[in-house]
Design a protein around this nucleic acid. Structure first.
Length: 528
RNA sequence: GGGCCGCUAGCUCAGCUGGUAGAGCAACGCCCUUUUAAGGCGUGGGUCACAGGUUCGAAUCCUGUGCGGCUCACCA
């Protein structure tokens, strides 16, 4: 099935093999600057690479997933969502690896941002090999790359100038230096000796010195040169990039030329991925502007499989929204439908083609492998109701359902936690309720309404546990009619008595979910 | 200005390595003696933006046009 899959991850894997030829290992790369909270848009790149890596592996090929943390990048701007703004501001222009962690006790601001993501990725089935750029630069690993860039700086300049409005200045150098005294990049490279030594002066502290590229670690390449240098250094075969890079004159474009002309390498296979919108949760996605929606925020409401499903089921170059409003329910329903389809392979040739696409999406959505038999399914909407009935007590919900197998509980619990988090944080007011207790004051009712409730209470006690939902529901109508009430007027009364609202979940099944004893306890109070 | 993406049923979109147009919602009808945007069955509805081209055959590939969006040209 994998062989003829038309899923984008499989097609990309095919393309990598086609363009890069047979290799012992295919290097797939991703990476970002941890200059702020890593947001869900960044995650799209990570998961995209993961899916392609998995596709390669499932073809029996060897693939390596490297993730570069560029924490040797400059700290340019204090993100608005961070505390201690003034303290952070003191470290502007220094590499972010030297900026202190203001949220916890990590060794640095960069490391803190990195750790938060690294800790979560295994939950969604992503296991990259991390590369830390500060360490790499400091180790001298890139010394030769920098020297090469210096040797060919005029060629680089020509490439970059092609798309610049202002050409690079005559004394431009393809490297930048972090002052060894004040750590800022407010430096100017004054001279290069044609070999390993670079002289600079610092505008902030006035420091002047000569550094040996092989030993210093304080010199680095600017992004547009750094990226292709690393392609060559790591032998990158595949790396996707956002639309901001994939544009003529964008950094991918110039990096392609730089890797070929300067570093004697070939650019990786790539594709462009589009941005992600956030729906139903005010706030932007950018790490530099205020509120940030990050992977942990999404995992609070969506199970890991469902998170993967959203990304695996959408082509990378398509923009889509991650919703926190009622669409959450729709996404879960779609996922469940896809899951049912996976475990229900059709016979007819025609249906099979459609099925294969869905099935592939399902496979790729799994954190590990699909289970042997279909996981326990519960409609998310129903689950939300059950949780509210039990005030969020997941064990009670499982107990009342009675048919959740032991090995199905972990996944069920995960979904329940997400559902409960959603109900409490994002569900619209209409959707939420809590069952009254017998300590709550009675609602105001007319004599006829009290009588009807009383009659319903008797029916609940006598028949609810004997009859099924549908059979029992006639008792609701009977209670209304016999007391001269329109059923349409009586329903709100029952909802008010139970949850203090005019409306609620479909009544008959709602009563059964609550259980006869609890219902009786609440509505028998209206008996004369 | 360059590049990229989109334009498919009233709405949101799927279908895109070519083979007689799909889903959900909305609408309409019937059923379940009405309920958080409840459920079931059924019906109607599209010259797949437009114009050319390739092909036995194009929503799907190519070229051009129009409309919408994003992005680059400072940094990364």
């Amino acid at each position: 099935m994998v062989a003829k899959s038309t899923h984008w991850a499989d097609l990309t894997a095919d393309k990598i093999v086609r363009e890069k030829g047979e290799k012992d290992v295919y290097v797939c790369a991703s990476g970002i600057t941890p200059s702020g909270t890593v947001h869900i848009g960044n995650f799209r790149e990570i998961i995209s690479v993961e899916l392609v890596v998995r596709a390669l592996k499932e073809k029996g090929l060897n693939a390596k997933f490297i993730y570069s943390w560029d924490e040797y990048d400059v700290f340019r701007k204090v993100p608005a969502n961070m505390p201690e703004q003034e303290k952070l501001a003191q470290f502007l222009r220094q590499p972010i690896t030297l900026v202190p962690d203001v949220l916890g006790n990590e060794e640095s601001y960069a490391r803190a941002n990195e750790k938060r993501l690294e800790a979560l990725l295994p939950l969604v089935g992503v296991f990259p090999e991390y590369i830390y750029q500060a360490s790499e630069y400091r180790s001298g690993r890139y010394a030769q790359g920098m020297r090469t860039a210096l040797e060919k700086k005029d060629t680089i300049r020509a490439i970059l100038d092609e798309h610049r409005t202002q050409p690079l200045s005559a004394d431009w150098m393809p490297v930048s230096v972090f002052c060894t005294k004040c750590h800022r990049d407010t430096t100017k490279v004054e001279n290069w000796d044609g070999e390993w030594h670079v002289e600079y002066s610092c505008a902030s502290c006035g420091n002047k010195e000569s550094l040996d590229l092989r030993e210093t670690g304080a010199v680095k390449l600017p992004w547009r040169i750094d990226w292709p240098m690393r392609w060559k250094e790591e032998g990158v075969d595949f790396e996707p990039a956002g639309k901001d890079h994939h544009s003529e004159g964008g950094s991918f474009d110039t990096a392609e030329m730089v890797v070929e002309k300067i570093f004697d390498g070939t650019p990786p296979v790539s594709f462009q991925y589009d941005f992600i919108r956030i729906k139903g949760r005010g706030g932007k996605i950018s790490s530099s502007s205020g509120e940030v929606v990050s992977l942990p925020d999404v995992l609070e409401v969506y199970q890991p499989e469902v998170v993967r499903y959203m990304f695996a089921g959408t082509r990378p170059n398509t923009e889509f929204a991650i919703s926190f409003d009622l669409d959450v329910l729709k996404i879960y329903e779609d996922y469940d439908k896809c899951e049912r389809a996976f475990y229900n392979k059709p016979d007819s040739e025609k249906a099979l083609k459609k099925w294969e696409k869905q099935a592939r999406i399902y496979e790729l959505s799994q954190v590990d492998r699909p289970e042997e038999s279909m996981p326990y399914q519960i409609q998310i909407r129903h689950l939300c109701n059950l949780l509210q009935i039990q005030s969020g007590d997941i064990d009670k919900v499982i107990e009342n359902l009675g048919d959740v197998e032991e090995d199905q509980i972990p996944r069920f619990r995960q979904r329940a936690e997400c559902a409960w988090a959603w109900v409490q944080t994002f569900a619209p007011e209409d959707f939420r309720f809590s069952i009254k207790t017998s300590d709550d004051p009675l609602i105001e009712v007319s004599a006829a309404e009290a009588s009807a409730l009383s009659m319903l209470a008797d029916a609940v006690k006598a028949k609810m546990d004997i009859l099924d939902e549908k059979e029992f529901s006639t008792n609701i109508y009977a209670a209304a009619e016999e007391n001269g009430l329109e059923s349409g007027d009586f329903f709100p009364v029952v909802y008010r008595a139970l949850i203090g609202k005019e409306k609620g979940p479909r009544l008959a099944s709602f009563l059964y979910s609550i259980g006869s004893a609890r219902v009786f306890e609440l509505i028998s109070r209206y008996s004369a």
